[in-house]
Design a binder for these strands. Structure first.
Length: 460
RNA sequence: GUGGAUGUAGUUCAGUCGGUUAGAACGUCGGAUUGUGGUUCCGAAGGUCGUGGGUUCGAAUCCCAUCUUCCACCCCA
């Protein structure tokens, strides 16, 4: 009966080592968010399904984890409904809550719900797990952490600029080289208008989003399958094969889309954004990518996606501007823009590139050897002193063999050992062993404080 | 949700055609060394062969189901 315990598919335990690395990622991201003036909020893991459903398209609705009502959840369901076995309908009768699917929709809900308390423009960040009932793969989990930054209540393109700047700042601090791809939903609308298929923008963008992956012929085949006319597809071809830098692409676009008000507006927005970015000292590359569409149907302006140049793992950060999201919750005319960092994928990238600095992940700076009852009070006075100096220290809890205590320090990468046995106590000193070099020296209690301040790392 | 691969000690992996007691390396633990780790030497422990059924005199090996992980779609961080 006692089978090994396990955790649900696509979820993970994080070891102490992994957590220290993850916290390094979260800390880096959080520091940068704060540096740019964003403030944290949190929202519940559970949302009402009415908040979540219909915001991510049909596909998204399928991937929502639904939570069974508590108590006698079938009490209101008739036998007739049960016998119909319509699981879609039935689930809406017996589930009224779901796990959040991303942080943007709960944020929109938060903004609408707290509109009277919020000072606009509202700059917030949010670092929390989200859940998707997706089939797991590498870099794809059912529970994963997103780190969102958004500013809501401002139309200014300075916000887009700021987000791209944050992206560059974070990834350069993490030493990940990236390419930030930028597009604009208005340009995509313009293109759809230009080829005479204005109403099919979603089908068109989803298809051309795959250009990189499946090639131009397959994209055209998919468009035809979706019912886009051959004439329109032919008209689209030159746009898909634009060459040159972002400026050149924009100029060519401007000619082609000269009759589309929306398209021209998108071009102007991208131009402005690139002119801001031109003044910044950026580490990573930024480019206009007309094939960047992204699935989410709420983007209305800028679309942003970040990829690692060294590891292929899908996007590690993505986002854009959404004018209508708060409108879904009854608050019109409030525009927002934001991006989301995928902490778990960033972890995978750092891991694969061997970029974690594991030298700083020891639990303690100093281990004090435990010799037994009669030496304990001496050891305790030493550890009190060290901790007062903000030096991470631990006393080995059991008086086991010295060999064992030293190998404990070794395997936990603790850099210093303090040995205080009968000899040291008699001479009012301690023996300090440097675990890296193997050297050891005697230091008197009087000098311990200055020795510690000089040689031991102080924890923040 | 569709299609395909995978699973053997804590870890990475061997395991012949279905045949006796399932092996190795690393790691762990003990000893050589009663106050000195990371090197060396000696020794030991550790397995329901993912799980459940089936075929067979006999199954890690063949068949079915199921779960996990991974891959390609779909979609996405």
């Amino acid at each position: 009966m006692s089978s090994k315990p396990s955790i649900p598919k696509g979820t993970r335990d994080f070891s102490t080592e992994e957590m220290q690395r993850r916290e390094y990622i979260f800390d880096t991201i959080r520091q940068v968010f704060r540096l740019y003036g964003y403030q944290p909020i949190e929202t519940p893991a559970l949302e009402n399904l009415s908040t979540l459903l219909g915001k991510y398209g049909d596909e998204g609705d399928k991937l929502l984890f639904r939570i069974l009502n508590s108590g006698d959840y079938l009490s209101d369901v008739s036998m007739e409904e049960l016998l119909k076995r319509d699981s879609g309908k039935l689930s809406s009768r017996i589930c009224e809550k779901g796990l959040r699917y991303d942080l943007t929709v709960p944020f929109a809900r938060y903004v609408v719900q707290h509109r009277d308390e919020i000072v606009f423009p509202f700059k917030r960040y949010q670092i929390q797990p989200v859940w998707r009932a997706d089939r797991p793969q590498k870099g794809r989990y059912r529970e994963f952490f997103q780190c969102d930054v958004d500013v809501i209540g401002s139309d200014s393109l300075l916000n887009e600029y700021e987000l791209v700047r944050i992206i560059d700042d974070i990834f350069s601090r993490l030493h990940i080289s990236i390419i930030t791809k930028i597009n604009n939903r208005k340009i995509l609308s313009g293109i759809a208008e230009y080829i005479g298929e204005g109403s099919r923008i979603t089908d068109i963008t989803v298809a051309i989003d795959k250009l990189d992956k499946i090639g131009i012929d397959s994209v055209n085949a998919e468009l035809r399958e979706k019912g886009v006319s051959i004439e329109a597809i032919n008209k689209l071809q030159p746009l898909l094969s634009f060459k040159g830098d972002s400026d050149e692409k924009l100029s060519k676009l401007e000619e082609l889309l000269s009759l589309s008000v929306t398209g021209l507006k998108g071009i102007a927005e991208v131009r402005t954004l690139f002119s801001y970015l031109g003044q910044a000292e950026m580490k990573g590359k930024v480019e206009l990518d007309l094939t960047l569409a992204r699935g989410l149907n709420y983007y209305t302006g800028a679309i942003i996606e970040v990829k690692s140049t060294d590891v292929s793992i899908g996007s590690i950060c993505g986002g854009g501007r959404y004018d209508n999201l708060a409108g879904v919750f009854g608050m019109e005319g409030v525009s927002g823009v934001g991006v989301s960092f995928g902490a778990d994928r960033i972890y995978d990238v750092l891991k694969q590139l061997d970029l974690f600095d594991d030298t700083s992940i020891s639990s303690s700076e100093v281990l004090i050897v435990n010799f037994g009852e009669s030496e304990t009070s001496y050891a305790l006075s030493v550890i009190e002193l060290l901790r007062k100096l903000s030096i991470r220290s631990e006393l080995y809890p059991d008086p086991v063999k010295l060999k064992k205590q030293i190998s404990y320090a070794d395997s936990k990468k603790i850099p210093f050992l303090i040995i205080a046995g009968a000899d040291e106590i008699q001479n009012n000193c301690v023996t300090i062993k440097n675990m890296t070099s193997g050297d050891q020296e005697k230091v008197s209690l009087n000098e311990l404080r200055s020795y510690a301040e000089k040689n031991f790392k102080i924890s923040r």
